[in-house]
Design a protein around this nucleic acid. Structure first.
Lengths: 337, 337
DNA sequence: ACCCGTTACGTCAACGTTGAAGTAATTCGG
DNA sequence: CCGAATTACTTCAACGTTGACGTAACGGGT
C-alpha cells in the first residue's frame, strides 16, 4: 500500500514549487513549455493523482452529485438512474446513489449525508419521498432538482415528463387503432398525492376529444406491479366489455396481458394494450408492448442543466416539462388483421 | 444560500474551543456533561453539519465506497447493486456508482476517478471489465473487491457465487422432475474468458451424476438476452427432442418460454424450464419461472466484509464462494399433473 | 503540605490543494 | 535606454477537521 503522492512530491522531483505543479495540472497557463514537460514527466514517474478531497475543500466544488430514489431494482427507476449517470459521467461528475425504499425518515437521512459530503447538487425522485424533508434541505443551502413532480418552492428546481399529454396521446392512439371502449388500470397509491392522477386526466381528455363516453366502471386501480395489473384486469374481465386497455405503467401492462391471455383474448385483435414508461423489456415481449416513452437520457441531461443553473442563478427556476412519445408496437397496431 | 457553519461557529457560540466541539461531535469523551449540552445546543442553533471532506482529508477515511458495474439497467446488476447499496447504507457508508458499459477504457477511467476521491474501497463486477486495469489500480493502493469472478492477485479480494454448483443443482432439479433429455442455452460471450463456462460444466456434471448421456447438439449458445434465448430455442426446436431446458439466465429463460409457447409446447408438461439469477420478475411470469437464487444481500454484506478485511489485513485474502439455491416454481414443478 | 494522577479542556500543526498577492526576469514602446 | 507591462514563477494563508501535545484545576493519598 504505497502512500499516494502529492503535489509536493511532484514539485520536488521537477524542481519547481507545488503551486506551479498545480498550475500545470489544471492547465491554468503561466508556465513555460519546458517546465510543463518536466512536471508532466515527474507526475508520470511518481504516479501522481490529484486528491479531489483537498481540492474540493478549497474550491467548494466537489464534482459530485447525489441521486436519491425509491428503489433501484424497479426497471423504471433503474433506467432513469442510468440516464442521469450517463449524463453525469459525460460531464465529469461522479454520482452517489442512495435509496430510501419509501421511508420518509430515510429520505432525510440520505439527504443529510449527501449534504455533508458537500455534493454539488442532488437529484431526487420524489415518488413517495418526503417532500417536506426535501424542502428543508433546500432551504439549508443544498441544491436540489426534483424529478417527476413539479414542486414550486424556493431553491428547488423541478422537472417532469408530460404525463398528462402522454396519457392522452396513448389513449388517442388506441382509438386511432379502432378501439371504441377503452379501459384503464390506474394506481391506487395516487390517492396519497392530490396532484398525481395525471394519467387519469389524460385518459378522460382523450375520450372527450374523440367524443367517447366516460364509463367509470372501465377504470380500475391496483398496485403498480405485474401482479396488480393481472388482478385489475381479471376483475375487469368479469362483466366489462372493452377492446382497448391503457395501463398505468409497463409492469401493469405485462400483468394485464397475462390476464387477457389466460382469458383467451387475443392481443391486439380483441384487446389492444398500451403501457407507460417504455422500459427496455417492452420490445422483448410477445407481442411487443406499445408504450409511452419518456426520454430518460434527456431527463438526465436536463436535470443536470437545472443543477448548473441553480448554482449560477441561485434562485429557483421555472419547472420544466419534457415531451413524451407514443411508441406503437405489436400489442396495439395492425389490429385489423 | 447560507454559508454552511463550521466547528468554529459552534465553538464561538458555545464559548469553547473548536477542538472541544469536535470531541463532542465524535463522542470522544473528555468533557463535562454541562459543556456537552452547551455544545449540542449551539450545534442545533447554527445548524452545524460536519464537513466530511475536511474530516476525510485528515483521517484518511472517507466513509465512501465505489461500485463499478457494466450496466445498471440489467435487472441482475440492478439487484446486485441494490444488495451492496443496502449493506453500505446499513454501515453508514455512502456509495458511488459508475458504469463502464463494457468499455475497458471506461473501466480504467472510472477507477481513476474513484481513486482520486480516496474511496475506502471499490467493488467491481468484472463481467467484461478490463481485469488488467483493475489489477493496476490495486497495485497503486486502491482496495478492490472483485465480485462474480475469482481473481488471484495481490491486493485484490474476490467473491463469487457457486455458479458451477448452482448449475449442477438446477439440472439435477429438472431431472428430479422427470426430465430425461435436458437441453441448455449458454452464452456465446463466455468464449472470451477461459474461466467462464461454469454453467456448462455444472450441466455436464449433473448429467454424469444422473447417468444421462451428454448430447452436444442439445447445447446452444446465444446472447444473454430475451431475444437471444428466443432465437436459441427456435433453433433447438428444429430437429431436437427435449423435455427440460436449463437457461443461462432468467432473461434467456423468458425468451425460451416465449419460443416454446409459440411452438405450442406446454410448460412444464412438455418442457420444464429453469433460469439462473432469480431476478424479481421470475415470480410474476406465467408460469412462474424456476431459477437459481444468488443471495444478493449476502453478496453485498460479504463484499463489504472483504473490503474491511483488506483495510486491516492489507494482504489479499482467500477468495470467497457463496452457496446458491434452486427455487422451484411453476415452470418446472408438478409436471405429472 | 506535597506530589501524582486524572479530568477537562486549549493550542498548534497538518492533511493536499488553490486563491491572492508578491517578486524577479524579460519584453516592449517611445 | 528607461519605465511599464508581461511572463513565469514563488510564498503564504486558508479551506474545516483531527492528532499530538500542552496545561490548569482538582482530588486523594501520605
Amino acid at each position: 500500500m504505497p502512500a499516494a503522492s502529492t503535489l509536493h512530491d511532484v514539485a520536488k522531483l521537477a524542481g519547481v514549487s507545488p503551486r506551479t505543479v498545480s498550475r500545470v495540472v489544471n492547465d491554468e497557463g503561466g508556465f513555460n513549455e519546458s517546465t510543463r514537460r518536466k512536471v508532466l514527466d515527474a507526475i508520470e514517474k511518481v504516479g501522481y493523482r490529484p486528491n479531489l478531497l483537498a481540492r474540493a475543500l478549497v474550491t467548494r466544488r466537489t464534482g459530485t452529485i447525489g441521486l436519491v430514489l425509491v428503489d433501484m431494482t424497479d426497471p423504471y427507476f433503474a433506467e432513469l438512474a442510468d440516464g442521469v449517470q450517463q449524463a453525469a459521467q459525460d460531464r465529469g461528475l461522479t454520482m452517489f446513489i442512495a435509496q430510501h425504499k419509501g421511508d420518509p425518515a430515510m429520505t432525510a437521512a440520505v439527504l443529510d449525508q449527501l449534504a455533508s459530503f458537500a455534493v454539488d447538487g442532488v437529484i431526487v425522485y420524489t415518488a413517495r419521498a418526503d417532500v417536506g424533508a426535501v424542502m428543508a434541505h433546500a432551504s439549508a443551502g443544498l441544491r436540489i432538482v426534483v424529478v417527476d413532480q413539479i414542486v414550486q418552492a424556493p431553491g428547488i428546481a423541478s422537472l417532469a415528463s408530460d404525463i398528462l399529454g402522454g396519457a392522452e396521446a396513448a389513449v388517442l392512439h388506441l382509438i386511432d387503432q379502432g378501439c371504441t371502449r377503452v379501459a384503464m388500470v390506474g394506481n391506487v397509491q395516487s390517492d396519497q398525492s392530490p396532484l398525481q392522477p395525471r394519467r387519469e386526466s389524460g385518459y378522460r381528455r382523450a375520450l372527450q376529444i374523440a367524443g367517447l363516453e366516460y364509463v367509470p366502471s372501465l377504470v380500475r386501480r391496483g398496485e403498480p406491479t405485474i401482479e396488480g395489473g393481472r388482478l385489475a384486469v381479471q376483475s375487469l374481465l368479469q362483466g366489462e366489455e372493452f377492446d382497448g386497455l391503457f395501463a398505468y405503467n409497463d409492469l401493469v401492462a405485462i400483468g394485464a396481458m397475462q390476464a387477457l391471455h389466460a382469458a383467451g383474448r387475443r392481443i391486439p385483435q380483441d384487446v389492444a394494450v398500451i403501457g407507460f414508461d417504455d422500459i427496455a423489456i417492452c420490445e422483448a415481449l410477445v407481442p411487443p408492448l406499445s408504450s409511452v416513452r419518456l426520454n430518460r437520457r434527456l431527463i438526465g441531461e436536463r436535470a443536470l442543466d437545472l443543477l448548473e443553473a441553480l448554482s449560477v442563478g441561485g434562485a429557483s427556476l421555472e419547472p420544466m416539462v419534457l415531451a413524451t412519445e407514443v411508441v406503437g408496437r405489436g400489442s396495439s397496431v395492425n389490429r385489423l388483421r
